[in-house]
Amino acid sequence: MYSQLEKYIKARTETDDETLSHICSFFQLRKTRRNEFLLREGEICKQYYFVNKGCIRLFSNTDEGEESTRYFHFEDAFGTAVSSFINQRPAFEFMQTIEPSELLVISRDDYFHLVETVPQFGFIYRQILELAYIKSQERIYCFQKLEAIEKVRWVLTNQTKLLTRLSNKMVASYLGLTPQTLSRLKSKL
């Protein structure tokens, strides 16, 4: 149950088995169904998730009622609604598993306890935040400049899981396109 989390930690920081066991003891397994909500807009996020199997999607609804996907967390990654988790204010997005998933869940209190008391976990926390910032900046600046066909090429090059595991509707909402436009562009590539 914890082997993927242990592998994730070992790949990022030097740690012994006792410390790994201590870290893992704070996580609980949660199995979810397809399209199960982990967080709804307006709720306060109190949990962080490590994806053993499956995928978590973070999205919001536009004023027109369309979904706008911000991020996908696949296997071997941590995911949460970071802003709400850190500042304990209502989330402006939804968090949902989009396929049956196995998640390792840690509460906010336990998460920050580990950050403060286990240097290796504090290091991983900084890495998670840095990577999240870099990915969001890449997406913002990349997508502002690119034409629709270039966005699809970018996904093919940098995030192929999106096109192989997700519906056109979800990928289109991530790229800021309609599903019909995405289908048309995919057929051209």
Rank of each mutant, 00 (worst) to 15 (best):
E66L: 14
T69W: 02
Y71V: 10
F72D: 00
A77C: 13
T80K: 01
S83N: 12
Q88Y: 00
R89I: 13
P90S: 13
A91V: 03
M95T: 06
T97K: 01
E99M: 14
V105N: 02
R108C: 07
D110A: 08
Y111R: 04
Y111A: 06
V115Y: 08
E116Y: 09
T117H: 14
V118Q: 10
V118N: 02
I124G: 00
Q127Y: 09
I128D: 01
L129G: 07
Y133F: 14
I134S: 04
Q137N: 11
Y141T: 10
Y141A: 09
C142A: 14
F143R: 05
K145F: 05
K145E: 10
I149S: 04
I149C: 02
E150D: 14
E150W: 09
V152M: 09
R153L: 11
W154V: 01
W154H: 15
L156N: 13
T157H: 13
N158F: 09
Q159C: 12
K161L: 15
L162S: 03
R165F: 01
R165Y: 11
S167W: 06
S167K: 12
S167V: 08
S167A: 13
N168Q: 14
M170G: 01
S173R: 02
Y174A: 06
G176K: 05
L177H: 09
L177K: 07
L177R: 03
T178Q: 10
T178L: 05
